[in-house]
Design a protein around this nucleic acid. Sequence first.
DNA 1: CGGTATGATTGTAT
DNA 2: ATACAATCATACCG
Length: 370
Amino acid sequence: MDDQTRMLASMGGLGGLSQADVGDPDSVRKQQDIGDILQQIMAITDESLDEAQARCWPEEAPAQWTPQREGELGGSTAGCALPLNFQHRKHALNCHRMKPALFSVLCEIKEKTVLSIRGVQEEDPPDPQIMRLDNMLLAEGVSGPEKGGGSAAAAAAAAAAGGSPNDSSIEHSDYRAKLAQIRQIYHSELEKYEQACSEFTNHVMNLLREQSRTRPISPKEIERMVAIIHRKFSSIQMQLKQSTCEAVMILRSRFLDARRKRRNFNKQATEVLNEYFYSHLSNPYPSEEAKEELAKKCGITVSQVSNWFGNKRIRYKKNIGKFQEEANLYAVKTAVDAANVSAQASQANSPATPNSGGYPAPCYTPDGRL
DNA sequence: CGGTATGATTGTAT
DNA sequence: ATACAATCATACCG
């Protein structure tokens, strides 16, 4: 009680605001006291904005040739008399021995009210949308670790495998270049966002910390503010990720949809494949190893071999007649090869085609005609 | 230019 | 996961 009155007195001395009527009941008076103090604080907080503004004014104003009368404006040569006045009041408030207690009470009250208003939506789980985007960017190699030599190595490998610099490898490198471009843009934008975010966060935190000396701001509140800022920025980042994903998709559909740029396999490759097919007509299902072997021989991928056999089987079955000529041709071919291998020349039996399975064998004569 | 050949993709069943 | 069937989209050829 004593303290309070003393504080009031001192505040009153400062601002001349203490018009507390002495006749009131105690509780009411207490409330009013607190109200007054709050007003004081508010006033100082508000004014400190002006003060800050005042401080921003360049001091290059030539020294005033007519020094102002001290009594009137608080006495200062620095153009504006307000700052000192405020400094003084602020200092007095800060140094008041009731200040810490009052401050903590204010913080507590504020904590309660603020928390009850919008407290319970903490720690939202990671957005599934953003996770999806992240996964995709990672899968496309946009957001993952920089695989510096990766593209070069891949291109080299493709060139080596292809033997000749075919179109596909050229297109592949083109695709890679475009992807790298997207990747670069993505990363620079992301970096920009992150920098802006941290800068802004720092700025706000400093501001709040600065203000927390005159205004009840708990560390928790600052944390919350930071979280809000981060949420905002991450939503911006999501837009970036989304548009990057779109760009990658467009690129993919343009460059990697092989149907658009279908190339027939070269003659030798088809020959190898057909040879295998017709010499295994009873069971034209190459094993994984066989597929790999064929792929290597033909300079195509294993899945291309699989595609070829899939297409071949279905088309052969659908119209055996159409393929008979071809079948005979390759049958003879293998027969000749076999004959060449075995020293016993063309004293021909039927060639080594053990036809016993599901695919009807073409009928042919040893000389290769129907 | 139109028809066919052909490699790739998609959907479905096993 | 693999095979099959249907389909797509391009390549190729007369």
